[in-house]
Amino acid sequence: MSKKNPEYDFAWCPGCGDFGVRRALEFALRDWMNETRRRPEDTVVVAGIGCSGNMVHMLEGPQPFGFHGIHGRTLPIAFGVKMARPDLNVVVVAGDGDFLSIGAEHIGPQAQRNLNVTAVIMDNGVYGLTKGQSSPTTETGSITSTTPFGKLEVPMRPLEMYLTWGVSFVASCYSSRVKDLARLIMEGMKHPGFAVVHVQSPCTTYNDTHDILKGDIKKGLAPKIWDIPPDHDAASLEAAYEVARSPGIPMGIIYRNPKSASLDQRVAELALKAKPKSVQELVDSYLV
């Protein structure tokens, strides 16, 4: 159930990172509306399948439009929505399984096009909703229900992959840092192009990494997350790679292409130059 709908029969587990991401997204949407003087219905949230996709039903406060589609296809749907209506603010919410496994084929094309949407990716390193299978970001050797003798593959390194795919805005955060995350999502929405905000959002049931991420002095655990220093040049792809390749999980904006021009901008420019024929003219061009 959710606050707005007692009929809705889904819930996140206690402590799930997605709660923090939801708060951050609500803040970011509020800030976006305040800053742009736009209304809630001017945003469309396109959700993937998995625990994280339920975000679209869990959002509280002023309600944006939502599309809870099919597994792995958030980007194609978002592409259709955004290119049909470039005036809309389009946000993708998906998990590491949806976005980086079944849906990975769609990241490259949208990066090449520089589709103007913001993808908030909740990475918990596991398939949670289907009860604990190995995902692209699961660590090597991990025991999961589908890797009972330990995962053989090396984990994908999404931040480096985004840069290589050509994503024009890449940020990284942790679900418990709600305010930072809200700011990063807002930056992503303001960025004129494809923005990915990759969030460590632990699954408290199947892969609880909260302690590993933030560290635990009592257990002698050093934090895995670290803040990107303020002097990092996010406009430099080289510097971005360096951050993305560093050990641990960087927090902040890794890359922001300063020359980013979105697909809808370029399509609009082309559309102005086009000389469309009317249907009548088209039919007449085939006259015998």
Partner: peptide
């Protein structure tokens, strides 16, 4: 022209879901 769009997708999977996204919009 303005308000119209034809686009070559990267696969039929992308094409169908993009068309649905446009229909929804």
């Amino acid at each position: 022209g303005p308000g119209k769009l034809a686009y070559q997708a990267s696969s039929e999977i992308e094409a169908i879901n993009a068309a649905i996204g446009a229909g929804y919009a």
